[in-house]
């Protein structure tokens, strides 16, 4: 299946992995103070977090480290290893929304400790969202006798960050889910992820 369509999918809040949030915040050993700060952040972020994503299937061609992704051509060892045996990918963008950035900015002004914990919570939330989206894609392709690889984002491994430009035009992220690419390749909202998942035929 490659229908050339951009799918938009919103999710309910995935369950929060508290230890993961604390890890992102740099807390190696939890304390009552850290836990209560985390509780406060979860309470404050509860209303502002959204879980939006958009994704699109592409047929790909792999030639050594050169990969034609269907929306761009890229040279990357990491990606070519991950995509070994795949003839399709899902390209996605996921975000927990602009309001989280506002909330972080607010606490940066009045309480950096809270801001750091909110940052950590935002990172955990967007990763949890990516996990939800991946299992959704896994469900879709299972019906076609396929399975998914892990995910890889531009800027990780040797996958160039520049690929973001192609990703943004291929997914129309800005119109679909409000994610915007800045001149130096940072995304707004900051708690957003773009990534590629390979799809392998196992029939």
């Amino acid at each position: 299946m490659n229908d050339n369509l951009i799918y938009v999918k919103d999710f309910d809040a995935p369950i929060i992995d508290r230890s993961e949030v604390l890890r992102y915040a740099g807390v190696r050993e939890s304390s009552p103070e850290a836990e209560s700060l985390l509780d406060e952040c979860i309470r404050r972020a509860g209303d502002v977090l959204t879980y939006n994503s958009c994704y699109r299937f592409f047929d790909i061609k792999i030639n050594g480290d050169e990969i034609d992704l269907g929306f761009a051509t890229v040279k990357s060892r990491s990606l070519s290893v991950m995509l070994g045996g795949c003839d399709r990918i899902v390209l996605f963008c996921a975000t927990v929304g602009h309001k989280m950035d506002r909330l972080i900015a607010k606490y940066t002004a009045i309480s950096p400790a809270t801001a750091v914990m909110l940052q950590a919570l935002g990172s955990e939330r967007v990763e949890a969202l990516c996990d939800r989206l991946c299992s959704e894609v896994e469900d879709i392709v299972r019906g076609e006798g396929c399975k998914c690889t892990a995910r890889l984002s531009p800027g990780y491994g040797d996958l160039p960050l520049d690929l973001q430009r192609g990703v943004f035009s291929a997914l129309d992220c800005t119109r679909r889910i409000g994610v915007v690419l800045g001149d130096s390749m940072f995304m707004t909202p900051s708690k957003s992820v773009t990534a590629i998942i390979g799809i392998k035929n196992v029939k």
Binding site: A25, G26, V27, R28, E29, S31, E33, A34, L37, S111, P112, A113, V116, M117
Partner: peptide, 14 residues
């Protein structure tokens, strides 16, 4: 000495 972590440091600073 890694006995207090970043959020703790910041809470104290606040």
């Amino acid at each position: 000495n890694r006995k207090i972590y970043l959020p703790g440091l910041l809470m104290s600073a606040e």
